[in-house]
Nucleic acid binder design. Structure first.
Lengths: 222, 222
DNA sequence: ACCTGAACACCGTTCAAGT
DNA sequence: ACCTGAACACCGTTCAAGT
């Protein structure tokens, strides 16, 4: 039993999105060992997750540096890689929400993003502000989409809507069933409120943000 | 023992940010009753949190509708109210990350935001896109700031930096201590990377986003 | 050095039993 | 109707004991 065995088993659990298997006890069971055996190779559970994040981020990487190219295109490509990974592996998002992620691959990624921003003409203050805004949007999107996916399988305790065979999910049907007098916009938009957090929506929102950041940068320089 | 007693006790625990007290067992202890007594008045734990969110959101409200006024000013005011609440009460943020929040006050808030966007000239598709982007940013900011606050008190298992009396926190000192050859931007920006998620940063990022959304709206209409 | 057994101090929730 | 005791099926982690 090695540290790598543990990380590998944990990553398999993360891949299958089996949060039940992603426990010290569940991990140990899969490795044919007791839970306490893990602590000889690993400090605690967060360290296992950090190891996975480091591995995944290294896999994700960043877009190729295309000098003279469009910094926004680079940022879209790089940001969407992280977004896809966070949406696919909710366990990693949970870790991001608990404590700052400071594994080497995360620092390298941050360095690369800041460097592209700097070379795109952002000054120091706006470099940080732009990075913060982009990272914030990415994490928030993954959080909303993950919550949506989890909510699909679960009906709230005091449900407003009855589920039918035609509409077996709660959340998409909620908006359509509200009184139109009180919630005219929700009812009118209800068909599309279902697709609240799609890849296309992430893309459009990200473009709007990058445009906003760029116009702020240009304003300052003129 | 009433449903309101339970909600009130739970809200007191959320206010004190005592996540330990925010358990069925801890709540029951505070109310001088066994944990199982709660289930006579409440379906499950999420229902208690939903009750709190409904109460808090109703308190938070939205900005006054100022007809002929600036929709961006309204949006900033309304969005910052939610941001402040989510940062102050991390337990509510945790609930937002688990499942979509569909309590009445949340629906009313969504309706109000969509209505302001519509009257500001956004078409249906862009109404939803704008709402999604703003909500995404707000949630992501609260998640990053909450993670940062939690991280201040905790040093990772494999710490890169030693803590001293002069710098008793881990994360702010991490960036400054990296090798400047590998991470030039992180080291150069390290003094300001500490204040990654301030109210001012939220404000600036939000303005950039609203500007980006506005210019996309205008582009389409011309 | 590496693993185990038993324990500590917890979770949310169910269910039969009491009043 | 409302509350309790005991139990179920879990958590992460510690620590003394074994090999």
């Amino acid at each position: 039993l090695t540290r790598d065995d543990i990380t590998a088993a944990a990553f398999r659990a993360v891949e299958r999105d089996e949060l039940d298997a992603l426990t010290m006890r569940g991990l140990a069971r899969e490795l044919g060992v007791t839970a306490m055996a893990l602590y000889a190779h690993v400090e605690n559970k967060d360290e296992i997750l950090d190891e996975i994040i480091d591995r995944v981020l290294r896999d994700v990487g960043v877009a190729d540096v295309d000098d003279g190219g469009d910094w926004k295109a680079w940022m879209v490509e790089t940001t969407e890689r992280l977004q896809r990974v966070l949406v696919r592996y909710p366990a990693l998002l949970d870790r991001y929400c608990r404590r700052p992620v400071g594994v080497p691959a995360a620092l390298e990624r941050m360095e690369a993003v800041l460097d592209v921003l700097r070379r795109a003409g952002f000054d120091d203050r706006r470099c940080i502000a732009a990075y913060a805004t982009i990272q914030t949007y990415t994490l928030g999107f993954a959080a909303l989409e993950t919550a949506r996916q989890r909510g699909l399988r679960q009906v709230p305790a005091r449900a407003v809507v009855e589920l039918t065979e035609a509409s077996p999910f709660y959340w998409p049907t909620l908006f359509a069933s509200l009184p139109a007098s009180e919630y005219p916009n929700l009812v009118r938009l209800s068909p599309d409120l279902t697709s609240f957090t799609t890849d296309a929506q992430f893309h459009d929102g990200l473009l709007a943000i990058l445009d906003g950041l760029e116009s702020e940068r240009s304003l300052e320089q003129s």
